[in-house]
Nucleic acid binder design. Structure first.
Lengths: 339, 339
DNA sequence: TTGTAAGCGTTATCAC
DNA sequence: GTGATAACGCTTACAA
């Protein structure tokens, strides 16, 4: 009743609620958390007081006491990348729905950055971790999170058998779809613009390609950049027997390929067919419209969050892996509907 | 010395350090924080003990006591959008460098979502707020953050004169650049695909356009989507006297315009010139390559973070506004180098 | 059913 | 200079 003097009264505390309801703090706590048995009358009184004072329990104090922060750390190599941004969105939605907050860290593609991020997060006692690793080794990872039992789910770029789960795309199926489609168009000399081999996606896509083609002759490993894709394509085009089709392992690579072709005046899809992993929303507006393997990037974040929440709630169950489905979207760059 | 029995020893606490150094907790605290005068010897002993035990102060306990969390809330309508994702990256970098963590909330373009986010954040006692508002009114905003004095910097979409600062793009200059360039190409019937008028960018861009053209005849207000851009363009094209050039207020709108033109078989830039705000990294690969006003989206996040950090550190200084510069990048869609 | 008291890991105010 | 001691706001044995 006091404290109404000025406009800015400090936020109500549990003690205030208790006092106002005429009970002890512990009783108030129990009433609010629905723990223990207590008379309907007191419970109601407490609830009413809490409502009236607009009581908001302090997460800080609660966490300090319970050792639960209801906060999840999200670590990615680069939030500005469309894929990670979308994953983040998916994860954030699912986590929030489950009552968790997300603390974001960007490792900036560096192992040092990732380790620092993990340490900070562990320090903050996050309840769980969602990480797209930049490539730490297992031991450094464990060390960074403090050998803690903090459950961790990896996404996209996975650390071997670590963590309580992992979410990846159906890389193998996607690559197979791409290769098969090109074959249906009659191609026999297919090149691959592959991604970095330290990364799960880069590795899996290349592996499936090689499994299908039984040759590495036309494989070119690139960084995930437009420039790398352009360079590799230029080299491919200069070959004595150039490929008649190329598969890009990501949009950036495909864009680079497109740029190279434009420079060299090779027309798609007549002189060279192009298909790619990742279906950007401007895919249909490129010239030619891009045939691609598409998927919902948010889904990988969401799925990872779901896995993590389960792990945080009931320990056990063991490690789980989920694959986010992909689909082939046919446009013109592969030769479909061409001529 | 004890506790080494098993691999998992709980993290060292200040008390452990103090004990190990043979001093009291308060002394240890002072040594670690460099507060108060104490003998060089004790300080060294404490530091050594802390190092040896790999002591990491608990942010939770510290925050509870000091009422400072070193955490900043970041609220955006949609993290998956390239612009916000980039802003986030910029902000995150600057904040981390200044010792702050970022807690991310996505309002999902809804006012309700934003209010909920703000409440949660206020509840967590964040030291500051970075928000691209979805459009709350001033009173609800103040109420949500609890009438608190938590400094807030707005970005992109700004709440009138609220908060300690705001960061926006040079919308007026950008629009002027676009209009002038089109005029140089001889255009006199220029249309504008405008953005939502509840949003700062949408509003400012439209205003500058009208200021330059002195007419709203060819202005079409759209949502920030490809579909809206397409629809509006179709309508424009069907006019008795259609425009000879169009300015899109964002990439999505430009993409929609492109799609509409393709459908109708109108060739760019001959039959219609197109220029746009936002220079996507695939801008050069579209057909025709897009002339656009570009800027560094990360910079808006970074600038906002800088403003916020200053506000959090020394209260005062008053409200400040910064504008992130833009530049015109000429490609073919405007008519440059055409024919 | 409810209250008392201890404690989570810090920092701040006092004495000594 | 350094050490008790009391918060910060909450939960949870343990008593009553």
């Amino acid at each position: 009743m006091r404290e109404q003097v000025t406009g800015r009264r400090r936020a109500a505390t549990l003690a205030d609620v208790a006092a106002s309801a005429g009970v002890s703090a512990s009783t108030a706590s129990r009433a609010l958390n629905g723990r223990g048995e207590l008379s309907a009358a007191t419970r109601a009184a407490v609830l009413e007081a809490a409502e009236r004072l607009d009581f908001q329990p302090s997460p800080l104090a609660r966490s300090l006491r319970t050792r639960q922060t209801y906060t999840v750390g999200f670590v990615v190599p680069d939030v500005a990348s469309p894929f990670y941004a979308a994953s983040l969105k998916g994860a954030q939605g699912a986590l929030e729905a489950a009552g968790y907050r997300v603390m974001l860290m960007d490792s900036d593609q560096s192992i040092e950055g990732e380790v620092a991020a993990l340490r900070t997060l562990a320090n903050h006692q996050v309840d769980g971790l969602l990480v797209a690793t930049a490539g730490v080794e297992r031991t450094r990872f464990d060390q960074a999170v403090g050998g803690a039992d903090t459950p961790c789910v990896f996404l996209d770029n996975v650390l071997d058998g670590a963590g309580v789960g992992a979410v990846m795309l159906e890389n193998a199926a996607g690559m197979t779809l791409l290769v098969d489609h090109l074959r249906e168009h009659g191609h026999t000399r297919i090149a691959l613009l592959a991604g970095p081999q330290q990364e799960t996606s880069g590795r899996e896509r290349l592996q499936s390609f090689v499994a299908a083609e039984r040759s590495e002759e036309l494989v070119r490993v690139c960084a995930w950049t437009q420039a790398a894709g352009r360079g590799a394509t230029l080299a491919l085009l200069a070959l004595e027997r150039p490929p008649t089709a190329v598969i890009a392992s990501s949009v950036e690579l495909a864009l680079g390929c497109l740029a190279a072709c434009r420079e060299q005046g090779v027309s798609l899809p007549d002189e060279l067919a192009l298909v790619t992993f990742d279906d950007p929303d401007f895919g249909a507006l490129l010239e030619p419209p891009l045939t691609a393997v598409g998927y919902d990037p948010r889904e990988v974040g969401r799925a990872a969050a779901v896995l993590l929440v389960e792990a945080m709630q009931d320990h056990g169950k063991g490690r789980r892996e989920v694959r986010v489905p992909i689909t082939l979207v046919r446009r013109r760059s592969c030769g479909c509907g061409a001529r």
